[in-house]
């Protein structure tokens, strides 16, 4: 028997009490699509194209760049990436990069358009944060990267991104987000990498398909009052403004049009017959 089959069967044989616990913990409340929770009042602020949603506190001196330098090899198309070391509100050194791209060697997740679409349907049927589905093009990308040592002694690099997306089309039926076509919405995402003894990045994980920044893409964005999608180390920095949304999913326009219809058909069939 294939080894993985044996492992899968073994997981299938776990104690029933664990399965019961999993079922009991699953959210039960269902909210119809048209009554999804509206965004909080602070998202009514419309940002101008040139206003960046973070506060920069410049370092008086250059600082020790070797302690924060992280290689970036893929910038935004046609624009040069530029970096500087700044200090965040906790006094930590941060490498701030404008026109930032993904680091070389980033593991790009498999095309998860179908999963994304299925997930977005789940957003419609769960008690969820606010949801926004848009088409847009990235117009800015700023990253903030930290090095830290984990509990296991390994060195990690954490990079958070705040990107500006100019909205070309709103895909949500009832748009009460305060954003409209032509606006720029700022979206948040982050990566984690592990630095090996040679100082090289050994691991990155980026789930969504990698869309070239010059291409229009479909973004599934969400937000919630607690901003739970922003990890503590980024929140504490003081660099992330309140009005960023979470990049829950990104896919090409072409993928979206094909996959979304399939997902809707699947669920429509289920709703009608079950």
């Amino acid at each position: 028997m294939r080894k993985i089959n044996k492992l899968n069967d073994a997981i299938g044989g776990i104690d029933e009490k664990f399965v019961e616990e999993y079922i009991e913990c699953a959210p039960r409340k269902r909210i119809p699509w048209k009554t999804i929770a509206v965004s909080a009042a602070c998202f009514a602020v419309i940002l101008s194209a040139v206003y960046l949603p973070f506060a920069l506190r410049k370092v008086p001196d250059k600082g020790d760049k070797s302690s924060t330098e992280v290689p970036f090899y893929t910038g935004m198309a046609g624009l040069e990436a530029s970096s500087e070391v700044i200090i965040d509100s906790l006094g930590r050194e941060v490498l701030h990069t404008k026109n930032a791209g993904l680091p070389d060697g980033t593991l790009v997740g498999q095309n998860s358009a179908l999963d994304w679409c299925t997930t977005s349907y789940c957003y419609m049927t769960h008690d969820t944060p606010s949801l926004l589905a848009i088409k847009g093009i990235k117009v800015s990308s700023d990253s903030y990267s930290y090095k830290s040592v984990g509990e296991d002694g390994a060195e990690y690099v954490r990079i958070c991104y705040v990107s500006g997306i100019r909205i070309s089309d709103m895909l949500k039926e009832n748009n009460t987000s305060g954003y409209d076509e032509g606006d720029i919405i700022y979206v948040f995402d982050y990566l984690t990498g592990q630095v090996n003894e040679d100082g090289e990045m050994t691991y990155f994980f980026y789930k969504e398909s990698c869309i070239p920044p010059e291409e229009e893409a479909v973004y599934l964005l969400s937000t919630n009052e607690k901003k739970s999608y922003i990890p503590a180390w980024a929140k504490e920095s003081g660099l992330i403004a309140e009005n960023v949304w979470d990049t829950t999913g990104v896919t090409s326009v072409e993928n979206f049009e094909v996959i979304w219809q399939e997902v809707l058909d699947n669920w429509k069939h289920f709703e009608e017959n079950y």
Partner: peptide
Amino acid sequence: YYAFEDISEIAVKLGMAKN
């Protein structure tokens, strides 16, 4: 690994970041 849920869905249910 038992129910093969999408990681994003798990994150939403638990109010966590997907990473």
